[in-house]
Design a protein around this nucleic acid. Structure first.
Lengths: 184, 184
DNA sequence: CCACGAAATGGAGGGACACCCCACTTATGG
DNA sequence: CCATAAGTGGGGTGTCCCTCCATTTCGTGG
């Protein structure tokens, strides 16, 4: 990759990060190009679709979440480890504008870039935690990782943008984990 | 209201219904006006914002849901009645393109039209069912109707458009009601 | 050091959209 | 029947996404 191309790529990415933080997943691509100091054609060559740009912007953050799943893998209480991780995913999604929406669309679309999408990364990272939780009998056997991530992402989506989004998202995830009906 | 105005209003509404069913909440307002056989200015006068149009389109359907809540009010098992209703709301949202999105945005926005929005209608309708369920001890006391509708709407949003959306939505609502953790 | 080919660029332009203005049409009550 | 106010829609503006292509820039082999 030529050095000027790399420089432009990075500038676009950081402009996109700022703009998406301000306006969410629907941020104007032209405005991003403008702020990055490049022409719109350059943006479109580096990122052929809006989804591609979103994935690139959120890739680092999602990687952090995946790393957290790795740390939690050895936790003595697999059920708590899974719950902690799901809460973390929900909070990230609820507080990072556009992420939840991007994950939702990314999971729906024909998923052009094969297995490297953010959604796939999260599924892979969560699968291990869920397996351990299953083995420990801490999670109903019929629950899949896709179920859990769908639910958590839905919560992120629904709470994103509200004041106290993180608190709200955590509450709702806990509610789904424990159930609406009282125990006992 | 003059008779021709009323006629145009109705034509816009039915065109919007068809177009939103085809393209979701992002349907083109110009296309709706075109299919209704009116100018775009007419559409914008009758419905000052996209949200206003969506609310009008979904008003009837939401009313049906509210009526269903009324029917379920006298059910001998308040917990089951609430669960039935929440499932119905989730299925409606998941199978009616654009509804969930509309409810989400409607609940977030400054809500211009005071208390007549679809979101408020559902909150009102659900409050009675939840109170009865609370009294019967079938629902945790700290759970509010807004929590439940947010969760259910989130599920609708996340499953909308997928094949078998209704089944998927029902599954996830049941999961949230019973909890991810097994009962003991 | 330089010239050259490939890589990269960005501005212009096409097509679509939301929204607004304003000259014109039409329903309706007296 | 007609005056008037309500209602209309075509066209204009500004924005957006995306593509084409003439031009510039990089990096390398002589």
């Amino acid at each position: 990759m030529r050095s000027d191309a790399r420089r432009n790529y990075d500038q676009i990415l950081s402009a996109a990060e700022a703009e998406i933080a301000r306006h969410g997943a629907d941020a104007s691509l032209e405005e991003i190009a403008r702020r990055a100091g490049v022409g719109s054609a350059t943006l479109h060559r580096h990122f052929p679709s809006r989804q591609a740009l979103l994935e690139a912007v959120f890739h680092d953050r999602v990687e952090v979440l995946c790393a957290r799943a790795g740390e939690l893998a050895g936790h003595p209480e697999p059920g708590d480890a899974l719950a902690d991780w799901l809460r973390a995913v929900a909070v990230y999604g609820a507080t990072t504008r556009g992420l939840a929406r991007s994950l939702l669309d990314g999971g729906r679309d024909p998923a052009p870039p094969a297995g490297s999408s953010c959604e796939v990364m999260l599924v892979d990272a969560g699968s291990g935690l869920l397996r351990q939780a299953h083995d420990a009998g801490a999670v109903r056997p019929e629950v899949s990782i896709v179920d859990l991530l769908t639910l958590v992402n839905a919560v992120s989506l629904a709470t994103e943008g509200s004041p106290g989004a993180a608190t709200e998202a955590t509450r709702l995830v806990d509610l789904a984990l424990d159930g609406v009906r009282p125990r006992g």
